[in-house]
Design a protein around this nucleic acid. Structure first.
Lengths: 203, 203
DNA sequence: CTCCTTTTTTACATTGTGTTGAATAATCAA
DNA sequence: TTGATTATTCAACACAATGTAAAAAAGGAG
């Protein structure tokens, strides 16, 4: 994770900024935070912030990207679309639970729409790639894959958002199971698709 | 729409502010707009803005609320859940198309998360109320209604967002049809639910 | 016309941004 | 350890935007 080639001061500074950001998000929401706040909390000069990041959003994205990379890197590879969707949902719900205090703010009205947009697009992209691996390229699809994936990406986002804003009334396992049922019973996977049952197709 | 009991100056001022907001959203995105910009464009004094609205968000919400109220007021009532979902989607896609230049910005990374949150919650709430009208209160549901509705609310949002950010490659009719198929084939309506086919239940 | 409300004008204090140039301090590489 | 490099600090600046105030001017309602 921590690049050894990086100056220790840089590593220390970025960690301090990240921790300060997390604390402040927790305390007063994201939009209310200023660069001043962050550097004050981190006990760093404000100029130092601009040495590393363009602005508040830049910091947030790089920090969240690190978080998410750490998450996905620890995921075992899956081979069926069915299995992938189940696994992926579970891992994501657990991740969100671990950083619940962050997501509770970042998905609320005091959060960041650019982050939300990136999340949805990421979900859709991941689903699209998985689907393309499995669906034969010349298959006659009832609906454009892109449409289907953005439907499910939004659905998944809606579920995560509801869950975390309602203070996570179910376990990640239960949520993943409900999500899985909602997805499995629907759309692409139950339609004809050349009469192949994709849910059981292994690569 | 326009309250006759309201001073003409007030009506004029609010309309000018609304139009200025729309123009500016179109030109430079929402987040980049300042109160200064709005009043400059509207040819009004900045103080006048604060006489009517608390801040930029306050203006946006009240304006969008008017838009949406005008939309829903013009909708004919529906009686079956199936029919409602189909009609509602179509009306919403048409509405979004009409104000595409607004939504293209408001749903992009330069938009407003609080507006997005309100939209999703509105979709979920509307679906919930319709479902409660129809589902018998003592029915044993396979999943909590709230979960199901937030799944579909997010899905619908994901679809609308994808559509408008991709410059609306399909007609509202096609989108509503695709949305309808994705919903109809899934989850709640295809499960047992005491073996009643809710999709054909009239009130 | 007269009262009442809205709008303007001018002004002020406050906060935050983004960037400077020079001084200082920490780290790295050899 | 030394010397070069790089990160951080400090002080300061110009700028943009917010939110509020009091008094004057303009406009609409009855």
């Amino acid at each position: 994770m921590t690049d050894q080639r990086l100056d220790r001061r840089v590593q220390r500074t970025r960690a301090l900024l990240r921790d300060a950001l997390f604390e402040l998000i927790h305390e007063k929401g994201y939009t209310a935070i200023t660069v001043q706040d962050i550097t004050d909390r981190a006990n760093l000069n404000r100029v130092t912030f601009y040495f590393h990041y363009k602005d508040k959003d830049d910091l947030l994205f790089k920090v969240m990207q690190d978080l998410y990379n750490a998450l996905t890197a620890s995921q075992p590879p899956t081979h069926s679309l069915h299995e992938w969707s189940r696994q992926d949902a579970l891992v994501t719900f657990r991740h969100v639970q671990e950083y619940a205090h962050l997501y509770r703010v970042l998905l609320s009205e005091k959060g960041s729409l650019s982050l939300v947009g990136r999340l949805i697009d990421y979900f859709a992209q991941a689903g699209l790639e998985k689907a393309r691996e499995i669906v034969p390229p010349d298959a006659a699809l009832p609906l454009p894959l892109e449409v289907v994936e953005h439907f499910y990406a939004g659905a998944f986002f809606g579920l995560v958002r509801w869950w975390v804003l309602r203070d996570m009334p179910y376990t990640p396992e239960t949520m993943a199971e409900m999500c899985h049922r909602l997805e499995a019973n629907s759309g692409l996977w139950t339609w004809g698709m050349d009469d192949r049952d994709l849910t059981k197709t292994e690569l």
